[in-house]
Computed example of a mutant assay.
Amino acid sequence: MSAELLGVSRSAAPEVATTRVMARTLATFYAFGGTAGVCITSAAEPGNRRLVLLILSLVALLAAAGVGRWGARWPRSLFHGAVGVATALIVTAVLVAPDPVTSFAAATLIAFVVVDAHFFFSGRQALAHLVVAVAGVTAALLVSDGVPLGATLGLDLVLTGIGIVIHRLVVLASSASIDPLTGLSNRRGFDQALDELMSEAARVRGVLSAVLIDVDHFKSVNDTHGHEAGDRVLCRVADVWRHELPAGAMFARHGGDEFSLLLPGMPGPEALALVRRICALHPDVSLSCGVAQYRSGDSASQLMRSADRALYDAKIRGRGRAQLFTGGRNTRRSDGAVPV
């Protein structure tokens, strides 16, 4: 996982879809594209080219089944290939279509690719897919006899407009996952990343650690010095951590004075050492931290409960420290309260 994807706030990549959502969306578009291809083929002139169109449509339908079945387990990078394959199928359909009407009808299916690209990928990556898709169908239409240049250019404008609108909508949706005070991901963005990283860890038997971080005595800071002072403390913590965390980490403001952290590929003891090192970088701010390592079979809620138990243990031992959850008995009080 890249820092661009997981939001240590090093970029403003507008990626809002998890691999599960991406798989469902791509499978749906493949299914509708393949079905539309069958309809287009049925209206085409009989011959070998019509047979090729039918085969391409069936390939799209098979791809829909495959993506729907296994796509949620894919790494994000593999979706670039899946979207590229969709572009190749459509461009090929345009080239082999037996008549201009069929060519143009097949070319319109590239709109699915444009939507996928801007929904799945960040700005430059989406733009690259858009350029390849539009250039591909444009070239295919230009070499097809009988398709007017004006119609081709009109289609290009429609596709570009769709891309611009989808990009803007995705950017707006992405901003809903950002904490306006610190610029970190918020609880919603964290939960999306947690779902994706848990799926990946389960798929490849990977290592993942989760951390919950509390600012000690934060209420007294607000009460004594005002909420602006409290906000400055939160921003200072966010700045220190975001610059010290490794690439691929997900650091978020979980809510109030609590931050959350995901460290893919890092076991619990190593994550604990990292947390303690970063805490020491701002000794003027006391932090309590709970660390837990993903264990095979854990759900996302179980992992975060383990981190929460470790955080509680750190608090009852005097605050200003980090604890690793070792799988022992639950040290929470019966009422579930946590010291603040």
Rank of each mutant, 00 (worst) to 15 (best):
M1S: 13
S2A: 06
A3T: 06
E4R: 15
E4L: 09
L5H: 08
P14Y: 02
P14T: 06
E15H: 00
V16A: 09
V16M: 13
T18L: 03
T19R: 15
V21G: 02
R24S: 06
T25F: 15
T25G: 08
F32S: 06
T35N: 03
C39Y: 15
I40S: 04
S42G: 13
A43L: 15
P46H: 11
G47S: 07
L61F: 07
L62T: 07
A63V: 01
A65W: 08
G66D: 02
R69S: 03
A72P: 00
R73T: 10
W74H: 08
S77A: 14
L78P: 00
F79D: 03
G81I: 05
V83E: 04
T87V: 11
L89C: 04
L89Y: 11
T92W: 14
A93P: 11
V96T: 13
D99P: 04
D99M: 04
P100W: 02
T102I: 12
A105G: 07
A107D: 12
T108P: 03
L109W: 10
L109H: 14
F112A: 11
A117L: 07
F120R: 08
F120P: 04
F121N: 00
G123S: 08
H129A: 06
L130Y: 01
V131Y: 05
V131F: 07
A133H: 10
V134S: 03
G136W: 08
V137L: 10
L141M: 10
V143R: 12
S144G: 11
G150L: 07
H167K: 12
A173K: 07
A173H: 09
S174V: 03
A176N: 11
S177K: 11
S185K: 12
S185N: 13
F190T: 02
A193Y: 00
G206K: 01
A210T: 04
L212S: 00
F218R: 04
K219S: 05
V221E: 05
V221H: 05
G226N: 05
E228Y: 09
A229T: 03
A229K: 04
G230Q: 09
R232L: 15
V233S: 06
R236T: 14
V237C: 08
A247D: 15
A247N: 07
G256E: 07
D257H: 04
L261P: 11
G265V: 05
P267S: 10
G268L: 05
P269N: 01
L274S: 09
V275H: 08
R277N: 09
C279Y: 08
V285Q: 01
S286A: 13
A292N: 02
Y294K: 02
S296A: 13
S296V: 11
S296F: 02
Q302D: 14
L303F: 13
M304H: 04
R305F: 11
S306V: 00
R309H: 02
L311C: 00
Y312P: 00
K315W: 11
R317F: 12
G318C: 07
G318A: 05
R319N: 06
A322M: 06
L324I: 09
F325N: 06
G327S: 07
G328S: 05
N330L: 06
N330Y: 10
N330H: 07
S334I: 09
D335L: 08
